[in-house]
Simulated scan of single mutants.
Amino acid sequence: MRAVIAPNPGGVDALEVVDLPQPEPGPGEVLIRVAAAGLNRSDLLQRQGFYPPPPGITDVLGLECSGDIVAVGEGVTDLPPGTHVCALLTGGGYAEYVTVPAGQVATVPLGISLVDAGGLMEVAATVWSNVFMMGKLQHGETLLVHGGGSGIGTMAIQLAKAFGARVIVTVGSPEKGDFCRELGADVVIDYKQQDFAAEMKSAGMTADVILDIIGAKYLDANVSVLSTAGRLVVIGLQGGVKAELNLGALMSKRAAVMATTLRARPTSEKAAIVSAMVAQVWPLISDGTVRPIIHATYALDDVRQAHQVLEESSHIGKVLLTP
């Protein structure tokens, strides 16, 4: 089968399309013929050598995909061959075939094409597990999302609005700001033109939950705009890994700072996230309340171009590969 690896860390030229043996499903696994694979920023980090796959996991890039089940391993009885599915992966999505534990697989929601579903699992699982399961966002509360035009950002806006929250987003361009407003964002702040914390403070706004992809660079500012009993959830480190935390400011608000990743979690935890997500989010997708936002699709041979688009942050929503 054809697949994408980055044997020598580096820029987009490090990506290579190679021929590899087709994997076989083990006990509790399914084999998926990939229709589409979603790109994520963690893929860029893996290509650069900063985010290697966990021990025993394939070097093939890709943390989510959609496709058809073509074979199942021992013990799998509820996902027969031919089922249209999307899957949360630990690796291997940039390929024609991939194996994955059955608990990390879900049938494609009604009304969503098989290709578009390739960009659904990582963003939906990330938002549901961090904003709702960890951050415990409630009806009537305010969510601040950094990177509102990203795949995660566009999903977070839609889900938060669906559950009755107010949404503030930061974006890097007027075009992304307009799109976020169309999705339902109540307040849009262009971080290239404005200081988000200063803008929020001048308007008397605070956030009950913050979904942060920046990390160290935004830590102090994020804490400064947290509400009393607010929750800051850090899921990315684009702005660095080390920063000084003002514990006094945190204590005065009785607030919390949490940091999490999805890839390294045990299979049982991922399966629990997928199960809860399917129960809560899939109905909203099926009735049209929430939809995957797809920026563009690229053939597997054009993976370097796809990575370049993601690296430049010129996209809105998800970028997909279609093997």
Rank of each mutant, 00 (worst) to 15 (best):
G62W: 04
H84M: 06
Q193C: 01
V188C: 02
V234Q: 10
E122Y: 03
D68A: 09
E199Q: 12
D208Y: 08
L89W: 00
K270T: 08
S173R: 02
Q305F: 00
S313T: 08
D116T: 08
G93K: 03
K217A: 14
V34M: 03
T154L: 11
S173V: 02
T322Q: 07
L159S: 11
E175A: 12
D220E: 13
G177P: 08
M200D: 10
P52S: 04
L79S: 02
T228P: 03
M200R: 10
N246A: 11
Y298S: 12
V4F: 00
P109C: 13
E199M: 13
Y94I: 13
T206E: 14
V225A: 12
T267L: 06
G240M: 10
Y218I: 11
G288V: 09
E64H: 03
D116K: 06
Y191W: 02
I5V: 15
G82A: 04
E24D: 11
G28A: 09
I214H: 01
M133L: 11
I316D: 06
P21I: 03
L237T: 12
V209I: 14
L31F: 07
A156F: 06
N222S: 15
A296G: 11
G239F: 03
L89P: 07
R304A: 10
M134W: 05
I294N: 06
L114V: 14
G92S: 05
L226T: 10
D13N: 12
